[in-house]
Structure formats: structure tokens, C-alpha cells
Design a protein around this nucleic acid. Sequence first.
DNA 1: CTGATAATACAACATGGTGTTCAGTGAACC
DNA 2: GGTTCACTGAACACCATGTTGTATTATCAG
Lengths: 198, 198
Amino acid sequence: MNKRPELTEQTRRNLRTAFWSLYTQKPLEKISVREITALAGYNRGTFYLYYQDVYDLLSQIEDELLDELQRLLKERLPGVLEHDLGAYMSFVVEINLIHAEYGAVLLSSRGDPRFAARFKELLAPVLRRYVLAGKGFSAAESELLLEYHLSGLQAMLARWLQDPGRISLEQFVGLVLRMFTGEAPAPHTFTKKGEDTP
Amino acid sequence: MNKRPELTEQTRRNLRTAFWSLYTQKPLEKISVREITALAGYNRGTFYLYYQDVYDLLSQIEDELLDELQRLLKERLPGVLEHDLGAYMSFVVEINLIHAEYGAVLLSSRGDPRFAARFKELLAPVLRRYVLAGKGFSAAESELLLEYHLSGLQAMLARWLQDPGRISLEQFVGLVLRMFTGEAPAPHTFTKKGEDTP
DNA sequence: CTGATAATACAACATGGTGTTCAGTGAACC
DNA sequence: GGTTCACTGAACACCATGTTGTATTATCAG
């Protein structure tokens, strides 16, 4: 099966690209299969050879992003996290920066709440253990504070991704850590590492 | 026009109630005018005598809630806020508790992002002045931290409204203030920690 | 080269939602 | 008792959906 893999992949990409250029302009419910295929230059029926419906297409984009994020995070989690939450968060933010074209939209208020929810779910275990644990909160309190931090982080990250030039990555991570730990670290300057960041 | 105001008001209410009972069960885009009018016991055309479309109906509910919230907050702002952010936040939370039937849905992740955005916009000035001002943050940093606090508060409030019985209002406001002020113990009398299991 | 196969095109169909229109009905109001 | 009002019922044009059957290519195996 699939005698022409690179052609089908191209078609898939074309549909996805057409969809995304529409999605950056208007909400999901106003995007029709007609519009996508017209923009991509295919017959409407062709769409259904690749995707069940418009939401399925969006889901596949989201799945790819989240799968990669999870994979990368799991690689780094044991080595980095234990003694350096800051480095871990830097890594999280960097990954998002790489995929900013998608992430900035999906995580924003005009994005997909389901995506944001899954993103938060990914980070929840880390926050539970390294930000909330051992501070004497009841289970109910922890749950609420976790929601505060996760939603806050997600929204702040989304906003930063809109225009990452205004604040450096280090400064941004500094703000995140400041929120995590209360008031602890210094406000502006952050310790610089030996290497440049892309 | 409108010779029988109490009849038309009743119809309006019936349509709104029918819509809301559907909206608590499924997302907006899956709710049709047909469904609403069938549930309310009216002809489909009648809907269009009162609302432009389904989103218009939702908007009217949201507008009413936000208008009342804003009105109440403006009443209390000058008297209460200056010396007691805690009392002010208590008031904010109380108002939301009164309208929990709507607020708990609209503010939740399955609610309307536009509503959440407007809700946050309402509280933004207060946070800007009483939580962020005078702490030496740059404009860009303040914007990001504001986003963190607003989104965190909104999400935590939404979650609390789902089941306000688990934590008292005072305790909840204590958590909010704790997030606002860093880690400092809350001014109000609430927590007695150390007995619950973390 | 040729036949098989896979990717895509094109057209048509049934379904169901949208928003609008317009004549008609019954009850409320004056 | 006639008029006005709220609502009905039915129809209309439009558009999107998802599916199907048939046709047209391009690629590959033999």
C-alpha cells in the first residue's frame, strides 16, 4: 500500500498548511472543508481521504506537538530536574519557542482550550512535586494552587510567544521561577550560562 | 411596539433557559436554533424575533453578568480597596459565587474564552495597581506577570466554583492573596495547617 | 510495454443547518 | 368588536456536511 509516499505526504502537508493559514486568521468553527481544499488546490473530497473532518486535522497537529514535547521532556526529566527546576523550565520554554508558530496560536486565548489543557496536564506532575509538595497544603488547596500556576504559566508563555523579542528567554524563565517560588529570585538580571542561545 | 412586555420577557427567559440547559451539556457550536426552540416549545422562527443567532444569545447572558459585576465592583472600589485588598477579593469571589450557575460554566475550560478574557480585563486595573505596581518591574515584565495572575486567578476561581464546598470562601481568598503577595501569610484569619495530609 | 494499483478529480446525492419571508391564528387590549 | 401583538407553519434559497461512483492520471512490477 501507499505506492507514492512522498506525494501523499505532500498532499497532507498542503492541506495542513492551507488549514493553518486559515486558522491563524479565524476561529475553527468558521473554517470549512471547502475553504481548505480551495486554498490548497484540491477537490473537496480529497480532504476526506486524509482527515475525518476539520477538527481531526487540528488534532493531528496538536498531537504531533504534544508528543514531541512529552518525548523531549521525558528525556531531560531525570537528569536535569532533580537539582535545577530553572534549567528544566528553560528547556520547556525553548521547545515552545522552536514551535512558536504553532504554540503561540494554540496556547493563546484564540487557540484551542483542549490543547492548552493537555499542555498543562503535561507539566502538572512537575509542578506538583517541585513547586507544591511539602508546603503543608491540603489536597484541595494544592489542586487550586496547581490550577493557578498551570493556567498562569500557560497564559504567560502564550503571551511571551507572541513577541519573544521584548524579554529574553532567561528573563522570562526568571519570572516563571519567581512565581513558582514566591518572591525569591532577583527580579531583573539572571545568571548567564557559558553558551549562547539561538 | 411591545404591548405585552411580560409575555415577551417570559419568552425571552424560556429561550434563554432552554439554551443554557443545552450549553451546560455541550459546546456552543453543537447547539442549533432548532434544538433550543424545540426544547423551549416554540417555533424556530420565534427565536429570530429575539436573538440574531445563538452566539448573540450567549453574548447577552455574558453582558448581563459582566455589567452587574462591573457595577458592583465600581461601587465598592473606592471605599474598600485602598486599605484592604483581601476584602475586595472576597467581594469579587462572593459575587461570582452568587452567579455560580453561570460563572462556573463560562469561566471553566469548557466555557467561553471571550468571557474569561473580559472577566480578566475587569480585574486587570486592580492587579496592576495593588499587586504589581511599585515592585520595579519593567513594562514588559509587568504585562507578563499580570497575565499570569489574571489567568491563574480566573482558572482557580472557575475550579473552586465547580465545588465551593471543599474550601471555605475565606480560605480560598487566602490562597488568592498568597499568590498575589508572594508567600506571605494572609492577613485574614483562616488557615490552620499541619493537620491535613499533603 | 503493459496491466495493476494508488492518488486524485469530478459530479451527484441525501441530510441538515441557516436566516428570511409571509400569510394565518388566537388571545389581549382598548 | 376591531385592532394589535405574539407566535405559528410552511416555504425558500443558501451553504456545509459526509458519502459514493466513476473517471483520470501517475507510478511500479513483471
